[in-house]
Simulated scan of single mutants.
Amino acid sequence: MNRIKKKAAALVAQRPYHAVAVSALLLALTSSSGFLVTERAAGDSAEMSPASVEFAPTGPAFPEGAAGAAPEGSGPADPDLSPSTEPQPAESEPAAPQPTEPQPTEEAPAEEAPAEPEPAPAPPAAMTVDYQYQVQNNYYYCGPAATRIALTARGANPSQDAVASKLGTTVFGTNSAHETTRVLNEMAGTDFYQTRSIPGPRATPAQMDQLQADVVHAVTNGYAVVANIAGTLTDVDGGWHSYDGGHYVTIVGYADEGRRVQIADPANAGVSSYWMTTIDMANWIATRGYSA
């Protein structure tokens, strides 16, 4: 406000005729600042000296009772609406998350392991199939006769001629164990039989063990074994058996857990069966094979 005073005094001194205008300006300026310009000069002269301009406080700019005005010295009309001078508490910071202990989870019940199948009962130490013996009809029917003996253990009772026709037997005999395997499965209505070969001149220990296992498996399931053999051997009782040109016999039983085998020989009319060690039997089959 001092700057305004000084400027107004300067204008009056330089331009006396501008006093009226300056007065109006100062009145307009001071009406909002709370000051009033007064004249000290005597008389009605419009001239104003710089010293004659004063500013006096005039009180509130708004008339008493005007909208938005409050009586002098009165407090706020509504304490709830007045700005608070008390410091407001700062908003509390969110508490840091507390570590939570892992909650124990219920373990899923362990799946029960499938029950292991009970082991098959051990085969008996000795066993013989129920079979019907028959001597071969002629010298080259050993194949059909041995195959027929094996079929009777399965309840079939064909003629030797019928079996010979299936085998393709001629005066030269029956070709191989592959033929007996095929006819045994066909005429017994099964797929149980398969052909085992012992191609060397002597059976290996593995082939001897395989023969023992095959005989036990077949006989305990009610099947007889047909073997194509060649050569000369002596049975456990000292009997001599020689078939250098080849022959077919039927294994119808075993003893001593398969270490000995029972032979039904269609060419031996005097003795329907005899026993041989499984080792000797495997060597008798060497260079040929069997159906089991």
Rank of each mutant, 00 (worst) to 15 (best):
143 G>V: 01
157 N>I: 01
142 C>Q: 10
154 R>E: 08
159 S>C: 06
156 A>V: 14
141 Y>Q: 13
157 N>T: 13
150 A>M: 04
149 I>L: 08
156 A>D: 07
162 A>I: 02
147 T>V: 10
144 P>E: 12
156 A>F: 02
150 A>I: 06
161 D>A: 14
141 Y>H: 15
136 Q>D: 12
141 Y>N: 15
147 T>Y: 06
151 L>M: 12
148 R>G: 06
158 P>R: 07
143 G>N: 08
132 Q>D: 12
132 Q>N: 06
129 V>S: 06
132 Q>V: 13
149 I>V: 14
140 Y>L: 07
144 P>D: 13
151 L>R: 05
162 A>V: 07
158 P>C: 05
140 Y>H: 15
133 Y>H: 15
154 R>N: 05
161 D>W: 01
161 D>V: 06
160 Q>P: 03
147 T>K: 02
135 V>L: 03
149 I>P: 01
145 A>H: 11
128 T>V: 13
133 Y>G: 07
154 R>A: 12
150 A>S: 09
157 N>S: 09
139 Y>F: 11
155 G>E: 04
127 M>C: 00
151 L>A: 02
154 R>C: 09
159 S>G: 14
138 N>Q: 14
145 A>L: 12
151 L>H: 02
131 Y>D: 04
151 L>F: 01
132 Q>F: 01
159 S>A: 10
160 Q>G: 10
162 A>R: 08
161 D>T: 13
158 P>L: 09
143 G>C: 04
142 C>H: 12
153 A>Q: 02
149 I>M: 15
129 V>G: 07
129 V>C: 09
147 T>W: 04
148 R>H: 01
153 A>P: 01
144 P>S: 13
136 Q>N: 12
155 G>W: 02
153 A>E: 01
135 V>F: 04
134 Q>D: 12
157 N>E: 12
148 R>S: 10
145 A>I: 04
150 A>P: 04
143 G>W: 09
153 A>M: 03
162 A>E: 14
140 Y>P: 05
152 T>V: 05
140 Y>E: 06
154 R>Q: 14
138 N>F: 07
152 T>E: 05
142 C>P: 10
162 A>Y: 02
148 R>V: 02
146 A>F: 11
140 Y>F: 15
136 Q>K: 13
130 D>K: 08
131 Y>I: 07
157 N>W: 00
145 A>Y: 10
140 Y>V: 06
130 D>E: 12
144 P>F: 10
128 T>Q: 13
129 V>F: 06
138 N>A: 14
146 A>T: 05
137 N>W: 03
142 C>A: 13
134 Q>T: 13
146 A>Y: 11
131 Y>T: 03
147 T>Q: 03
127 M>I: 00
144 P>M: 11
152 T>N: 04
160 Q>W: 03
159 S>T: 15
127 M>F: 06
147 T>M: 03
134 Q>E: 15
153 A>G: 10
133 Y>F: 15
133 Y>D: 04
144 P>W: 12
139 Y>T: 13
139 Y>A: 15
151 L>G: 07
136 Q>Y: 08
158 P>W: 05
160 Q>A: 08
126 A>H: 00
145 A>M: 11
135 V>T: 14
142 C>L: 09
146 A>D: 08
161 D>Y: 05
139 Y>M: 09
130 D>F: 00
